[in-house]
Design a protein around this nucleic acid. Structure first.
Length: 811
DNA sequence: GCGGATCAC
DNA sequence: TATGGTGATCCGC
């Protein structure tokens, strides 16, 4: 076909791009294959790096070509089917969006959920001071790296509303150079400010954020505008002002500038912190319109996680902006993995996490080094040994031992190889690691014999740290305690919170997955369509309108597979039958239906739902089923986006639930917040807690309902104010949750430490019978079950994603 | 579990 | 002119 030509064109483009030329139309068309190859040859000859880059580029192009071929084979029916499916997903997601933006639900009552990642230049030198500043606004802020941090300043803003001006007033450094570290700039700025010239700090704020004009006008009556009184600045109470204040303080303290993004979730915050880059800020208001508006023309490449390759692949499908990404969702669901597709959908809808995940466990540790060509085997072995020593030192600092050793080799042509070996018991010393790495290296050397390996880089990595098991043990204990002594077995998902397989469709599950995995995914899949509470599967199937509707839709689709006849569809949004219309028209209807539902419209939806003519009879439960819908809507979102708990109360209130439920919701909200801050990092599962606290509300509803469906009983710590330690069973005198949690924390870890001691002494495998590892060593994890991520380490530790909890649970 | 690849910082 | 180090994750096998 045309693919060959396209490929060449692509190569040409890539090359020209890399050669620093642009592919501007004419003129370039004369370049034929030979010339291209010649240039490639030259490039390759001139630089092996370029040669390798081109090679990689070709591979990407090949991938794209394969993708396009795959696309060409997609039948219109497949696409339509995918369209329906992604419509129903859209349906699910849309509610998530709504809930993800508190302002959209209850603008008046709900404080803005605001997350700010300031980028600090050369953060390292001043990281402590800066961090001190940040902690003033969110003690739980998340430092992603040396120069990047996320804050949730929702709470701060709440408090800030009542702050007197004095508390928001900052003096501009005017000291002499001897007193201040770097006074020069400061002095200049002050003088600028005194002359009522906007200081550099705020120069770049888009004018539309200051509709009233110059925010520094002395006579400005706007409270939110900083007033400059001689050498002092008073910052307002808005999010924008608070962030200005942060940046001001950072700059004052460190002389370094920071950029910031204010948005309803981390993904957006990241993107908009980029917007006014070196020294500015940008805000996306927490309402649907603002988010959609921002997202609309946003190039997907701007989003974290979309790199060069993904961008190129999507570009080949005509996708550059988020809008296009959204429009092609059906196609994408057929071409990409569930994970990727889910990610894409997330992006296209402006969704992101609203939780600042705590530091997770390290998964691997490595050292690698680049050097000039090294071809002698002896040198390579000795280098390898050196690297192993370095690695062992680093490992020791964190007390880590692992079972998988990986070596990485890059030859002078920039070709990278990794070779790994997993052993049955953990290793950590330089000798142990080298013994394994050496073998791997020898294998590679032998494979190329008699040619030497011409290396330019070597690396050694250790992974498969065993603490997973211990931590999960710990987690399941916590889960056990939190969820009460029952019902867990029926709702194993409570230990499961990974975002990853929430959108797995049963049919597309890998064959390799376990029975439980499949069951779980099926359940999740149906829940996702139905918003049903995960704790009551059977009921959800019985009472779910949308499930029935979607099922019907699917059946319709199945039976109409080969006919163009119009079908009678029922909109999953408004639950009205759409008469005899085409699939396309139906989709349009659904989209329209879903487009921009206000709160009132939501109510209408729910009204629709109870008036709908589905087979389920719930006359007496009309009210309850409303709540159920709403809560599941909420819960669904919880799992997807991790909503700020504040919304819980807001949502309930907005929807006019009985006061009882409301107060419980508010209570659990309070709990969740405090517990978040107090529980040890790896032992407290926020989302799990959210689910629990949510169940609290549900419990109230279900209690007066005729539907039986046993609910998990919640531990007293959540339901009542009587604080009884679930570990030692002693009632605690304090009503202070912080203190109480500390007690539980200590109690809990006592038990675990004991358990681990017992474990290592008796050397009993904790996990089925798989490992018969009898290394008598006491594993270091036993001594560091608590907060391993807390040592200050320069190495980045990413948030934890507890994935195998369920496996443990079923064992 | 392995190896290649992509991505972020 | 020559092109880094560390860590995570995903995908296909």
């Amino acid at each position: 076909m045309h693919s060959t030509k396209e490929k060449n064109d692509n190569n040409k483009d890539d090359l020209l791009l890399r050669m620093g030329l642009n592919d501007n139309k004419a003129g370039m068309e004369g370049l034929d294959k030979e010339k291209i190859n010649k240039i490639i040859m030259e490039a390759t000859r001139g630089s092996k790096f370029y040669g390798n880059e081109l090679k990689k580029e070709k591979q990407v192009n090949q991938r794209i070509e394969n993708m396009m071929q795959q696309k060409a084979q997609i039948t219109s029916q497949q696409l339509r089917k995918a369209q329906l499916q992604s419509t129903s997903n859209y349906y699910a997601r849309r509610f998530g969006v709504r809930a993800a933006m508190p302002g959209f639900i209850a603008k008046r009552l709900c404080p803005q959920l605001t997350i700010v990642p300031p980028n600090f230049d050369k953060y390292q030198a001043v990281s402590r001071e800066v961090k001190e500043i940040l902690a003033d606004y969110d003690p739980n802020f998340m430092a992603m790296s040396l120069d990047e941090a996320y804050l949730n300043i929702t709470k701060h803003l709440q408090e800030r509303q009542n702050w007197p001006e004095d508390k928001r007033k900052y003096f501009i450094k005017t000291g002499n150079s001897l007193e201040n570290d770097k006074p020069g700039e400061e002095v200049n700025k002050v003088s600028e400010q005194e002359r009522s010239i906007p200081p550099l700090l705020f120069n770049d704020i888009p004018p539309d954020l200051h509709p009233q004009g110059n925010p520094f006008q002395a006579n400005s009556e706007e409270q939110n505008n900083p007033q400059i009184l001689q050498n002092a600045i008073v910052f307002g109470t808005s999010a924008e002002e608070a962030v200005k204040e942060i940046r001001f303080r950072i700059e004052q303290k460190t002389t370094l500038t920071a950029s910031a993004g204010i948005a309803p979730n981390t993904m957006l915050a990241k993107v908009c912190s980029d917007k006014n880059k070196p020294n500015g800020q940008y805000q996306i208001l927490p309402n649907r319109e603002a988010v959609m508006d921002f997202i609309k023309d946003l190039p997907i490449r701007k989003v974290s996680g979309i790199g060069k390759v993904t961008e190129k692949m999507l570009k080949a499908l005509g996708i550059i902006t988020c809008t296009e990404l959204y429009q092609q969702r059906a196609l994408l669901s057929l071409l990409f993995s569930e994970t990727s597709w889910h990610h894409f959908l997330h992006i296209s809808l402006g969704l992101g996490s609203t939780l600042l995940a705590r530091d997770g466990d390290r998964k691997s540790m490595s050292v690698e080094r680049t050097f000039s060509e090294m071809s002698k085997a002896e040198e390579q072995y000795s280098l390898c040994q050196e690297l192993c020593s370095e690695l062992a030192q680093d490992l020791q600092k964190e007390g880590l031992k692992g079972r998988t050793v990986t070596i990485k080799l890059k030859n002078v042509n920039f070709e990278v190889k990794t070779r790994a070996s997993t052993v049955s018991s953990v290793v950590s010393t330089a000798e142990e690691i080298f013994a394994i790495a050496k073998d791997l290296l020898r294998t590679e050397i032998d494979a190329d014999f008699p040619h030497p390996l011409r290396l330019r880089l070597m690396g050694v990595r250790l992974s498969s740290f065993p603490n997973e098991d211990k931590k999960q043990q710990q987690r399941s204990i916590i889960g056990f305690l939190q969820a009460g002594n029952q019902a867990l077995s029926a709702t194993g998902h409570m230990l499961e919170k990974t975002d990853k397989d929430q959108f797995l469709k049963p049919l597309e599950m890998s064959q390799k997955k376990s029975f439980f995995d499949k069951k779980r995914s099926e359940r999740k899949w149906s829940q996702q369509d139905t918003f049903k509470c995960e704790a009551v599967d059977t009921q959800s199937l019985q009472t779910s309108d949308s499930f029935q509707v979607l099922k019907k839709m699917n059946e319709n689709l199945e039976t109409s597979e080969n006919s163009n006849k119009s079908q009678i569809f029922t909109c999953p949004s408004c639950f009205r039958e759409q008469g005899s219309i085409s699939l396309e028209a139906f989709n349009k209807h659904v989209d329209a239906c879903l487009d921009g539902p206000s709160i009132n419209e939501d109510r209408k939806m729910f009204s629709c739902s109870h008036a709908s003519s589905t087979e389920v009879n719930r006359k007496e439960n009309v009210h309850h089923s409303f709540s159920l819908h709403e809560k599941q809507d909420y819960e669904t979102h919880q799992k997807h986006s991790g909503i700020n708990s504040v919304d819980c109360a807001e949502l309930v209130e907005t929807k006019g639930n009985p006061p009882k439920a409301e107060s419980v919701g508010a209570l659990s909200d309070k709990h969740s917040k405090e517990e978040c801050a107090v529980f040890p990092r790896e032992s407290f599962n926020t989302e799990q807690h959210y689910q629990n606290s949510f169940s609290t509300v549900l419990l109230e509803d279900m209690g007066s309902s005729q539907q039986e469906s046993p609910q998990p009983y919640l531990p007293e710590v959540i339901i009542t104010q009587a604080l009884v330690c679930p570990i030692c069973n002693l009632e605690q005198k304090t009503s202070d949750l912080t203190l109480f949690n500390m007690h539980v924390d200590i109690c809990l870890n006592k038990g675990i430490i004991q358990e681990l001691r017992k474990d290592s002494l008796a050397n009993q495998p904790t996990k089925s019978t798989k490992s018969t590892d009898t290394s008598g060593q006491v594993q270091k994890t036993a001594t560091k079950t608590k907060r391993p991520g807390m040592h200050s380490s320069s190495k980045k530790v990413k948030p934890n994603s507890p994935r195998h909890t369920l496996d443990i649970f079923f064992k």
